Simulated scan of single mutants.
Amino acid sequence: MNKLVILVIVGLLLVGWEYESYGAPKEELLEEALYSRNYSYLDKTYSEFILCPKIDKIERVEGDIRRHNVYASALNYDGHHNGPYDKINIILTDTPEYGVKINKVTIQKGISEKESLKQCRRKN
């Protein structure tokens, strides 16, 4: 098993840890699945951003149910060990004709503990 797969598994375990006894909410599982589906389109430079994946917003492109703009975010794995976290924000477009196109990637360095807890849904 390669290092990236192990990190993704560990990250998903950490995300669901708070909900261990009764399972994560359906919405959170859908966000994780959608983030994981699109994660492979990111440059390897961003491979450490696997913790607490979140879909912040999804918009239909011109009302079409097959075309979407997706706004996603996640925290870096390294922040889990060394703190503070960095946060990746991704904007992508997914269409049948062109597949997934990454439009914009930004990194917020050293986000606050409050922001990291909010990202991981541990506290608002």
Results as ranks from 00 to 15, higher is better:
28 E>M: 15
63 G>S: 07
93 T>N: 14
122 R>G: 04
40 S>Y: 10
103 N>R: 14
71 Y>H: 04
39 Y>F: 14
77 Y>M: 13
44 K>A: 14
5 V>C: 10
22 Y>V: 07
27 E>Q: 10
55 I>S: 01
98 Y>E: 11
11 G>I: 01
5 V>F: 08
65 I>L: 06
113 E>C: 04
77 Y>S: 04
54 K>D: 09
111 I>R: 02
60 R>C: 05
32 E>T: 06
8 V>M: 15
10 V>A: 15
82 N>F: 09
49 F>Q: 00
23 G>W: 07
12 L>H: 12
115 E>G: 04
34 L>P: 02
35 Y>S: 02
22 Y>R: 09
96 P>K: 09
79 G>K: 03
64 D>E: 10
44 K>G: 12
10 V>I: 15
17 W>A: 13
27 E>R: 08
110 G>V: 06
71 Y>N: 02
39 Y>E: 00
8 V>W: 09
53 P>N: 02
22 Y>C: 06
56 D>Y: 07
37 R>L: 06
107 I>M: 01
10 V>F: 15
29 L>I: 11
34 L>F: 05
1 M>S: 13
74 A>G: 04
34 L>E: 10
21 S>F: 14
5 V>K: 14
117 L>G: 06
39 Y>A: 00
21 S>N: 12
34 L>A: 08
56 D>Q: 12
92 L>C: 14
95 T>V: 11
89 N>Y: 10
54 K>N: 12
90 I>L: 15
90 I>R: 12
